[in-house]
Design a protein around this nucleic acid. Structure first.
Lengths: 337, 337
DNA sequence: CCCTGATAGCTAATCGTTTCGCTGAAGTCT
DNA sequence: AGACTTCAGCGAAACGATTAGCTATCAGGG
């Protein structure tokens, strides 16, 4: 592995000159430049990032820590993030906290040791689980979920509005007994979506039955068992709002396994679709997030911070959901059968 | 950000001692050790990987370069790889070559500059596009696809067997006019799967019609248009073998858009299912790969190399596919309608 | 009591860059 | 012609760790 010294020796110049050529950081006469370039090519010199970073105190690394890599929603974020990170000239270090606060803690420490220039974090813990020092010294953008009281930039969606839109749609179809299967209540996403749904019902003088509101892990299996339980009872809801795409798959599976039909027997709406579910039948009625836009925006904010073109102290960007009507919901009156 | 010197000063010892404590690399008396540990805790010292790596010439980084991050198949690999990499004490740097050899070339160079200790590569180019020097000095495992003549360890599936299994299944159902939509022919995966299918047909004295064999990019859109074209013609095949899961979705969409029904009008089988397609209706008949096992195995081989517990010169592990019967195929005689 | 051997812990060199400050040749002005 | 600028290019000091090699201390044997 050739070093800058080898190049300098071969080209008959100092290492400073080689560095100047590499980084275009000072004028170098055409002759010298040519000699250096030749030497670089012949020796196949590639600068050592370790050395450069030690000196510059930069790493060219951006960390992305997502909550659950098995969830296509996050897989989609990873995809967008990789592209954005590369476009900004960084490399992506990927972590999966698997919805476990302890794992997340280890990840944060690892990100620090790696000297990542910045990180995009989908936080998994409750607000009070974070120590302020876990964030200082490293540019941070929170994605999708926020941490109350934290001073990092955030990019989120309007969860409350998402819940409201989905519930309004179901209400417009005439449903009155609407249930919800949502994620862990300490997460801003779960809580916001549920609150939005309750808002929408309250606006029409309604409230969900207590037994029709259930929360659990953001996973297919969790949703499956909760749904089986809720749907098995005689006073089951006529429509259900599921807080995320993976859970919606679980719910549909539960419905099918109980011998119920969707949408004839039960209407299902959700928030956050799962990639590749284009083939899911019936197609889910859901509110969608502009995942790629959100991710790009998160990285723009992050790079802004890293490169210190900082404007305001804390920036929060909220994306609005859009309702996509599929085939998983029907008007109530036709539910008689 | 505290450095080792700060810790040494605070604990009243030399940096060498701090280093010894950190790495447990020499005996340190209990008293000193205690002082050092306290100082480390109080200063919240975390060693700089950049400095350590410069010195040790290691980076604790493993690169994963996949061919197409938008493909759930690779998303699944990413998921498994992140877990395996973390379990071995490394961090994962993720790249997406997007099936573009040029991008892949840039990635290889980047991996080199980053000083990654090793890489897992899903190669996208033809064998002759690789220069030997792009691989030397960095431990490499090729995953899923191989490069002829390359001396890296490989973990692949038996593509030929996968094609054979799928085709045999269709043949057993009585199909004779079987077509195939496959990926780029310079890739070992595409070629192997097609060869397997041809093998199976040849074993029964059959051969596919030339117009029934089409290749294109490993993407949904590509498959969609090729399928529309092939299915539109009057002598269309009665069954079709699609070389990958994402393409299968495109084919199913094309079939539906042409007003054809699957499996009544056409049987579809594929290799490599897409995660989350559990909800796809009808469920795809396909050969599946043990993705997690393959990925784990790839990382085991890689870490072996990195940590120089090398056994044989080159190791190749081939996984066998398994046929999973869904609902997307029917016996030929019932195709009359 | 001195010499030896063992060893805890220190000093300083080193990894491969970047970058500050310097040198000295060439150019400009009076 | 002398003094002053300019600036291409160089030398060497960082950056923060690891580690080879050394020093000093101490115990034990002769």
């Amino acid at each position: 592995m050739a070093t800058i010294k080898d190049v300098a020796r071969k080209a008959g110049v100092s290492t400073a000159t080689v560095s100047a050529v590499m980084n275009d950081t000072a004028f170098v006469s055409p002759e010298l430049r040519a000699r250096v370039v030749t030497a670089i090519r012949e020796l196949r010199y590639e600068p050592s990032l370790a050395a450069r970073n030690l000196r510059r105190n930069r790493s060219q690394l951006i960390a992305l820590a997502v909550a659950d890599l098995s969830n296509p929603f996050y897989a989609r974020i990873v995809w967008s993030a990789e592209a954005a990170v590369a476009a900004w000239g960084y490399s992506l270090v990927l972590f999966n906290s698997d919805e476990k606060p302890d794992t997340e803690r280890r990840i944060l420490s690892r990100i620090r040791t790696l000297g990542c220039d910045g990180m995009v974090l989908v936080p998994v813990g409750a607000a009070n689980q974070y120590q302020p020092h876990e964030f200082d010294g490293i540019a941070t953008v929170l994605l999708g979920r926020s941490i109350e009281g934290n001073s990092a930039d955030t990019v989120t969606i309007d969860n409350r509005e998402a819940g409201r839109q989905a519930a309004d749609y179901l209400l417009d179809l005439g449903h009155r007994r609407i249930g919800s299967i949502t994620g862990p209540m300490q997460l801003s996403t779960s809580k916001g979506r549920l609150d939005g749904m309750i808002d929408a019902m309250a606006a029409r003088g309604l409230a969900p039955q207590p037994g029709h509101i259930r929360s659990g892990e953001f996973r297919e299996e969790a949703a499956y068992s909760v749904a089986r339980d809720m749907m098995g009872s005689p006073d089951r809801p006529t429509a259900i709002y599921v807080a995320n795409g993976v859970m919606a798959i679980g719910v549909m599976r539960a419905v099918a396994d109980l011998g119920l039909r969707c949408p004839q027997d039960i209407s299902i709406a959700s928030t956050d679709t799962v990639a590749g579910a284009g083939g899911l039948k019936p197609r889910l009625t859901r509110t969608e997030h502009p995942i790629a836009d959100m991710t790009n925006e998160a990285l723009r904010l992050l790079v802004d911070r890293i490169e210190e073109r900082v404007s305001e102290p804390v920036r929060s960007i909220v994306f609005q959901p859009a309702l996509i009507v599929g085939e998983s919901c029907m008007p109530l009156r036709e539910n008689a059968g």
